[in-house]
Simulated scan of single mutants.
Amino acid sequence: MGDITKQELKDVVFITAHNSGTLTEDVQRQISAFDLDTYRHFLKAALERRENADATGAPGGGSRSAEYLREALEHLAYILSN
C-alpha cells in the first residue's frame, strides 16, 4: 500500500464534490468528519471520471491516476482510521 494520507483524500473528495455541484454544508461536514460512506461515494465518482477521461482522451479526469484512486478505495477504511 502506498502512502496515501487522509489529507490527500480529503482534497480529492472535496474537489470532486465541488466539481460535481454537490458540495453542500452537510457534505462539507461529512468530509471534515472523514465519513467513510461519503469518501467512498466521491472516490468512486472520481475514479469513474478518471477512467472515462483515460479511455476517451477527454479532459477533466482530475489530477489523480486511476491506480491511485483504486488503491485509495481498497484501503479507505484503514486510511481514514489513521
Rank of each mutant, 00 (worst) to 15 (best):
I4K: 05
G60K: 14
T16Q: 10
R29A: 07
F34N: 00
A55Y: 15
L23A: 07
T5G: 00
L43S: 04
H18D: 14
V12Q: 14
T38K: 00
A72L: 04
H75Y: 15
K10T: 07
A77I: 06
R49Y: 05
N19R: 15
A46N: 05
L47H: 13
R49N: 12
I4Y: 12
S63V: 07
G62D: 09
L47S: 11
H41Y: 03
Q30N: 15
F14W: 06
T56P: 04
L73R: 03
Y39W: 11
L47M: 12
T5P: 01
F34R: 00
Q7L: 12
L76S: 04
D11C: 04
E67K: 12
I31Q: 12
M1G: 14
L43C: 04
T22V: 06
L9H: 01
G60D: 00
G57H: 13
A46E: 02
L9D: 04
A46S: 09
A17Q: 00
A58E: 02
L80S: 03
S20P: 01
Q30K: 15
F42G: 06
V27E: 08
Y39F: 15
M1W: 11
R29Q: 07
F42A: 02
E25V: 03
I31P: 09
I15H: 07
S65E: 09
L43H: 02
T16E: 10
F14N: 00
T56M: 10
I31M: 15
F34K: 02
I4V: 15
Y78H: 11
R64F: 14
Q28D: 01
I15E: 06
K44W: 07
T56N: 01
R50L: 02
G21R: 09
D54R: 12
E74Y: 00
E51Y: 02
L76G: 01
A77R: 15
A33F: 07
N52F: 13
T16V: 08
Y39I: 06
G61H: 11
N82M: 10
I4A: 07
M1P: 09
A33R: 15
E25S: 01
L23T: 06
E67R: 10
K10W: 06
L73E: 01
N19F: 08
A58R: 15
A33I: 03
L76M: 14
A45H: 02
A55T: 12
T56C: 01
S65R: 08
R70P: 05
L73P: 05
S20K: 10
R29S: 10
S65Q: 06
E67P: 11
D11T: 11
Y68I: 07
A53M: 04
R49S: 07
G62K: 11
N52I: 05
K44M: 10
S65I: 00
A46G: 05
E67Y: 14
S63I: 03
A33T: 09
S65A: 05
